[in-house]
């Protein structure tokens, strides 16, 4: 347990670097909210190798730091809603033990988008935002599957490392 703080620092740094790389990708899809979610790779790995409390703390710290560095107050609120909902669902699905890393990451990606959409609906006070729902569902599914597949490979290779 004595290295816990040190590992947490490393994971936070990694998640922030991934957030930065994400901002370097200049692709616009014509629909807001679609992105790869590279930082979730770290969240998924931490969720699997430590526990959900650690992953939740990391997710919140990552979002607040990345929000202040690369985004604004709006992006922090949206990301927090997405991040917390996504992590809650991933933790529950992982507990049920019926899905692989890919499946859990897919659910996480989809829920991330749903969480952001709910906040957007509240902020602009219109259900019209729901127009984006199908696109965001499919986008979350694809990006979640990609992140999940990569996370699965990474987890296989770091099996012998202990992060406690």
């Amino acid at each position: 347990m004595k290295n816990r703080a040190a590992y947490f620092g490393v994971f936070t740094a990694l998640a922030l670097i991934f957030s930065y790389i994400e901002t370097l990708i200049p692709i616009q899809f014509g629909v807001p909210g679609i992105k790869l979610g590279l930082a979730n790779l770290i969240i998924v790995i931490v969720l699997y190798r430590t526990d959900w409390r650690e992953a939740l703390l990391l997710s919140v710290v990552r979002i607040i730091l990345a929000g202040f560095i690369f985004g604004n107050l709006f992006s922090i609120v949206y990301s927090l809603a997405g991040g917390i909902l996504s992590l809650a669902v991933m933790a529950l699905l992982k507990k049920s033990d019926r899905f692989s890393v890919t499946g859990i990451s897919m659910a996480g990606g989809v829920c991330h988008n749903i969480g952001q959409l709910i906040v957007a609906m509240i902020v602009v006070e219109t259900y019209q935002v729901g127009y984006y729902l199908p696109v965001l569902l499919v986008a979350g599914l694809i990006t979640g599957a990609v992140i999940g597949a990569v996370a699965g490979e990474v987890l296989k290779r770091i099996r012998n490392l202990s992060f406690q």
Binding site: R98, F99, S100, T102, G103, M106, A107, L141, A145
Partner: peptide, 8 residues
């Protein structure tokens, strides 16, 4: 897993 495909 099969469940992943069902979820997708």
């Amino acid at each position: 897993k099969r469940n992943d495909l069902i979820l997708a």
